[in-house]
Design a protein around this nucleic acid. Structure first.
Lengths: 240, 240
DNA sequence: TGAGCAAGTTAGTCACACCTAATTCAAATG
DNA sequence: CATTTGAATTAGGTGTGACTAACTTGCTCA
């Protein structure tokens, strides 16, 4: 706390040492968001970052420049951003924290899966790596969080397989639910009520035209769901 | 995040509503420190607050005025500060968080008692009340943290008995260790090596003049300790 | 009683991370 | 190829919580 003024660039002296940036909460959130966007597109657009973080696009421009200066991402004006190796490492560290915390809250403290996201969102910035590792150990080093998202390892590896969306299945195809969006408690409660949880088997029966509702089957039961929902459920195709 | 600008005073409209201040990390730290100081003195001095928080006294003056405006403390220039009921409530809430977290880390995650303070210091600002309650339940609602400090209840009650310091014993007196300072890992490890833990029985054998070392006995063993150490160990006199 | 001094305060800055409004850029369209 | 348009940026500003330097206050002791 005495050394809050530690942001001067500091020429030479040490051999660069740009890895030792201490990441504030907001910075970690930017990196997480950018990592997430990059999984789909190849460069993250200012607007999209702004939307995920619920802040004004103008704010993103400024922050992104600072992060680029710190070597966490590559940035060319008007061209979007890409994480550097250091940035990706930092993002994965935060994502690991988030997912371990979610898993721990559910498995060790009896939280319901629909509410852990918010709590994890705050704790991920405060927990030490040591704490995260202890939590992971305590619940048996799970490989995914309660919503099916893969947990990066201590050394930053993560299962990056790209699953398809339930909305992309063709009628008649059967698939295993692997992952669902973790943010919206309402959605999660609804999914649970349908039994549409990770590891459930789902079959797409038919799809109404013009982005209409999908008819699906989950363990015998038949439901109609909208495309918005079906886009938030990731699946892995099962052999017929 | 969209309503960051929620700090305008807002006249009338609602019947005052000054309880709904959302406490930032620094604010919680101020309140904790002031609560702590008030336990000894009757009003907290600017300098002392500054020292505990490791910031400049000038910074305290400004902050303290803001806290007074928010109804968290009473403040008269040059006279020190006192917590209001609301301020005390907020302080105790933070202290409860801190101590429950410390106890949980030790009892549920196998942390050693000398290192939990730092971790708790960060987590206490991020954990929800619900999480704290779950942690407390999981470890059987302990009444003290690992260093013997009493844990305030959900509704803000706390055992405020004033224990005496080991350094205040008279030669020949026997006492029960109730509590030790929680901040310094070095000190804690040393205390552990002497067996000077909460619930240990200690006897003061003699005290060298001029603030000299004290000779104590802990379970048969005899040690010489300095007054600085003896001041950080709180005890409860045992009947002879 | 008044001089000295430590404690406390004010004044003026700064970094951070956000904001709105105004502007610039790039890419698509006529 | 000029224009439109939406994305992105810059300009300028805010609140928070820290800082240093310069000042007041009030208390103690001669």
């Amino acid at each position: 706390m005495a050394e809050k003024r530690a942001s001067a660039p500091r020429q030479s002296e040490t051999p660069v040492r740009e890895t030792a940036v201490d990441l504030t909460g907001p910075v970690e959130d930017y990196l997480k968001a950018i990592y997430d966007i990059e999984r789909d597109q190849q460069a993250a657009a200012t607007n999209e970052i702004a939307q995920r973080l619920q802040i004004a696009p103008a704010s993103v421009s400024g922050m992104v420049r600072r992060l680029a200066e710190q070597g966490l991402l590559e940035y060319e004006r008007y061209k979007g951003v890409k994480l550097t190796a250091a940035g990706r490492r930092a993002a994965l560290r935060t994502i690991r924290r988030h997912r371990v915390i979610e898993a721990y809250l559910v498995q060790a403290l009896g939280y319901s899966w629909d509410v852990v996201h918010e709590e994890a969102e705050r704790l991920e910035h405060a927990a030490s790596d040591d704490l995260i590792d202890r939590m992971a150990t305590a619940i048996g080093e799970p490989s995914t969080d309660p919503h099916g998202a893969p947990i990066p390892t201590r050394d930053g590896r993560v299962d990056e397989r790209r699953h398809r969306r339930l909305s992309e299945l063709r009628p008649g195809q059967r698939a295993l639910v692997t992952r669902v969006g973790d943010e919206d408690p309402e959605l999660l409660r609804y999914l649970a009520s349908l039994g549409l949880l990770p590891n459930a088997t789902v079959t797409l029966d038919e799809r109404a035209p013009f982005e209409g509702p999908l008819t699906i089957r989950v363990e015998q039961a038949r439901y109609q769901v909208g495309t918005a929902l079906a886009e938030r459920v990731l699946v892995e195709l099962l052999p017929d």
